[in-house]
């Protein structure tokens, strides 16, 4: 590892420690905010691991997230809680592999809408199965506190960053960058593009499912309409794109300022939240092409820092 790597590692470790200690120095208010932000950081970063290099925009986050919440909802009484997020991750990864195998030959917008349709179909099927079995509403009543949920999310986040860093250094990451630039070239260079993409698609699938499993105790009442809400998929995409998907830390740079902005707008204009949020959004898109990563890069270029 080079000096830069060590420096980055040190910075990452320090930031992780800072994040993990939030429940200690922060107020309950910041813990609640932090939990939501941690959720989006985890989802958006894992999303960008796949979508950043391949340029495939996936709207399937809600499907995997919803499956995760159902894993907890169905299993929390019979299994110890710590088993559930890994279990959800495995189910998510397997599903993602299946989906990946059949869909990744679609390109561009067809893939985007396919994943959207997929999420909706999963939700409909789950609802229908519930209906057939006369299932009552699911209540996840546990003694898990917000603080524990937050720590689990931070831990999951650390894993995602580690995975992202390792993938970036591996042959897989190299292969994916070539695919993103030109799939034909990649094929000619002897890369099994389908396999590489499927392997990577499993990452956001597993992570989103695990996130859903961790967050189920926070929602308490699990119903398909909220667990599979398509808005979540869009929010994740939006936050990742706002940050910029070119860097591992890009999505985090989208999630945190955007969450703070959202909170500030909600407080200042409780009755026009959505209107102002929409306008703020447009302003960001117009003023910050390339997201916050783009802003940072321009800043570095102007002031001549190393890149």
């Amino acid at each position: 590892m080079s000096g830069t790597d060590w420096r980055n590692l040190a910075i990452s470790a320090a930031l992780l420690g800072l994040a993990a200690l939030l429940p200690v120095y922060g107020s309950p208010y910041w813990l609640t905010m932090g939990t939501t932000m941690a959720m989006f950081v985890v989802l958006a970063t894992s999303w960008a691991l796949f979508s950043g290099p391949t340029h495939y925009i996936s709207l399937a986050t809600a499907a995997f997230f919803g499956i995760g919440t159902f894993v907890t909802g169905l299993g929390f009484q019979s299994l110890p809680f710590w088993v559930l997020p890994p279990l959800a991750a495995i189910i998510g990864a397997v599903l993602a592999a299946l989906v990946g195998l059949v869909t990744l030959r679609l390109s561009g917008v067809y893939f985007v809408i396919f994943t959207l349709g997929l999420a909706e179909m999963v939700r409909q099927v789950v609802t229908w199965v519930q209906n057939q079995t006369g299932h009552r509403g699911m209540y996840v009543l546990t003694s898990i506190t917000e603080r524990e949920i937050y720590w689990m999310l931070v831990g999951l986040g650390a894993l995602v960053f580690l995975a992202g860093w390792l993938i970036g250094r591996s042959r897989l990451g190299f292969a994916l960058r070539i695919i993103g630039n030109d799939e034909t070239v990649a094929k000619h260079a002897g890369i099994d593009t389908a396999l590489a993409k499927v392997a990577l698609f499993m990452v956001p699938g597993a992570v989103a499912a695990a996130t859903g499993a961790i967050l189920a105790p926070r929602y308490i009442y699990i119903e398909p309409a909220t667990a599979f809400a398509p808005l979540l998929s869009f929010q994740v995409v939006i936050m990742a794109l706002l940050g910029g998907t070119g860097r591992l830390w890009g999505p985090i740079a989208g999630v945190i300022p955007f969450s703070l902005l959202w909170e500030a707008i909600t407080r200042q204009a409780p009755n026009q939240t959505l209107l102002l949020l929409g306008i703020a959004f447009l302003v960001i898109v117009y003023l910050l092409p390339g997201g916050f990563v783009g802003l940072w890069d321009r800043f570095r270029r102007r002031f001549g820092g190393r890149s």
Partner: peptide, 9 residues
């Protein structure tokens, strides 16, 4: 019934 927790129950 509408197929959500309320309707099913």
């Amino acid at each position: 019934n509408v197929a959500d927790a309320f309707g099913i129950e």
